[in-house]
Amino acid sequence: MIEATNVCYRVGATVILDDVRLSITPGTVTAILGPNGAGKSTLLKCLTGALQPEAGRIVLDGTPLDAYSLATLSRKRAVLSQASFVNFPFSVLEIVMMGRSPYIGSQATGSDAVVIREVLENVDAWHLQQRIFPTLSGGEQQRVHLARVLAQMWDRQHAYLFLDEPTTALDLKHQHQILRLTRRIAQERSMAVCLILHDLNLAMQYADRGVLMQDGRVVASGMIREVLTPRNIATVFEVPAQAVFGDTMPGGAPTVS
């Protein structure tokens, strides 16, 4: 479990995060939501240890986050960043293999091979295995990066997975496929998945919990249906919204319109 209390972060005089409190529980998918510039990515970076919050406390499984070594942390949590350019002609397999580097010395073993195959199949990119990464399309690159991040946590239990807008470059089919996958691994491997999403409908459909942010503050948090109320959406996104509960979506999930 990750518990963040009173997290503050500032760049110069601009307050990016102001007194943020949240917790992330194994076995659930938590969506961080909010308009552009609300501080979502910064919060994610604080939770993963990439940024050091100016004030506040982040505790991971009972130990303060900054007390972990980078190596230990790399076997407890994996992070998919928003944009990650690779300028060099690595093959897809090589990229995904890098996700296994916290566990292997120089040479991968058979079990690493199994992991790599499974993650690539799960993100629907196994057929791309021999392709040169920079020649892939944006969506394909995003799926391969996701496979790399999954490979880092695939054989772990109670691990943490942070995904910063994992569906931006994906087509409709893959958006649902990937989010369904995160939900499944959260439940099967009691993993804590924390993702930033812009599509409220996707959040409503696949997240268990939601954290709604505005101007660096948490406006609402809790079960996703309690967070994404028409009222909250209207205040935070300044767009009138209405919850439509029906059987228009598979699984009867509510949609926001």
Binding site: K45, T48, G49, A50, L70, A71, L73, S74, R75, R77, A78, V79, S81, S84, F85, V86, N87, F88, F90, E94, I95, M98, G99, S101, P102, S106, Q152
Partner: peptide, 20 residues
């Protein structure tokens, strides 16, 4: 060498993979 490979993913990514 292997660390340099991973650095090619980006500094944040390398950090997430346990590299200082």
């Amino acid at each position: 060498a292997q660390k340099l490979n991973i650095l090619l993913l980006g500094e944040d990514e390398a950090r997430y993979l346990g590299i200082n």
